[in-house]
């Protein structure tokens, strides 16, 4: 503490260390209050995020009855099982497929919205965001009913155009497609809204300057819009990759992993193994497989946000 006092007082040593200490006390009092205000947050993050994360790691090294430590046994068993490899593959197909589709559709719609007169935008935006507003577990119920093998209202529409009925949830590839379809339906509005916000933040003068420089519409998009939005696009995509990769609701309601565990993703499989079959350690191990992937995405998001902050300064 004494060392601190001389450090802070620095040049004006004449002022005496007594003064420096009272000032430090003020500063310290303020940071104590600040710390107390943040304490509930720290407790929450510490107790319900950091601690469970550590606990999950420990849990994943136990045997089924949680009586003995089997090291990486759970991970080995998982990596040896075909089902788990299927889960890995399905998770990747699901996340990548859905995110690409959402990003493209969202981008397209944001553009279309941006181009219509400002007066009507609110109305359209309001309607287009509805899928995002309904809790996904509930709207997926609606989709499930629309995919119903004998009463599918979608198949009824397809029949009008003489397309044969589709086994939406019965066939593995169709089931995979359906799961992605529902996720795209649910998530595209989010992309649209994010992109629209980004589009609106590009000043009109830039387009005018580009047009005067002779840029066509496409070139304007390529050389003005995309570079200006690059950061927000990547943040949104990465964020959505995390959320989609870890999705549970849609798979649980729509297919519950079936047929034959072929639509199982990490989350639903972890649930299946951990909670339903009662093998908590192995379920924890399944969840933990998501961790490295999510960590990489999170790292890039953080980088993107920092970069964005710097640009804005």
């Amino acid at each position: 503490m004494a060392a601190d006092g001389t450090l802070v007082a620095g040049a004006p040593a004449a002022a005496g260390s007594g003064r420096a200490n009272t000032m430090q006390r003020f500063a310290r009092r303020r940071s104590t209050i600040a710390f107390l205000m943040a304490l509930p947050l720290i407790a929450l993050i510490g107790g319900l995020v950091v601690y469970p994360a550590g606990y999950a790691m420990w849990l994943s090294t136990l045997n089924r009855r949680m009586t003995a430590n089997i090291g990486l046994g759970n991970f080995e068993i998982l990596l040896d099982s075909d089902t788990f490899w299927m889960v890995i593959m399905q998770s990747c197909i699901f996340a990548v497929g859905a995110v690409i589709a959402k990003a493209l559709i969202g981008f397209w719609l944001a553009h279309m919205l941006h181009h219509i007169p400002a007066k009507g935008q609110r109305k359209w935006r309001g309607m287009l965001l509805i899928p995002w507003v309904i809790p996904p577990a509930l709207s997926t119920l609606g989709w499930w009913w629309m995919f119903d093998p004998s009463y599918s209202s979608i198949n009824w529409l397809l029949n009008i155009f003489a397309v044969p009925a589709v086994p939406w949830l019965g066939e593995p590839w169709w089931a995979r497609f359906s799961v992605i379809l529902v996720n795209v339906w649910y998530g595209s509005p989010f992309f649209m809204i994010m992109y629209l916000a980004a589009l609106k933040s590009v000043p009109d003068q830039l387009y005018e300057a580009a047009a005067i420089d002779g840029a066509t519409g496409w070139q304007g998009l390529r050389y003005v819009t995309l570079p200006m939005m690059q950061n927000i696009i990547s943040i949104t995509v990465l964020f959505s990759l995390i959320v989609t990769f870890a999705n549970y609701d849609i798979v649980r309601v729509l297919t519950n992993g079936g047929p034959r565990d072929l639509t199982q993703v990490f989350a639903s499989y972890a649930f299946q193994v951990g909670i339903l079959s009662g093998n908590l350690p192995r379920g924890a191990a399944v969840s933990l497989f998501m961790f490295p992937v999510l960590a990489v995405f999170a790292y890039f998001i953080l980088r993107g946000i920092n970069r964005r902050n710097k640009e804005q300064m």
């Binding site: 040049a11 004006p12 004449a14 003064r19 000032m23 003020f26």
Partner: peptide, 19 residues
């Protein structure tokens, strides 16, 4: 701003430590 050195006096009281 905290005063790093010296004294400020307002109306006869040193206010260095006064909020």
């Amino acid at each position: 701003e905290e005063i790093s050195g010296g004294e400020i006096d307002i109306g006869g009281t040193v206010v260095n430590d006064v909020p």
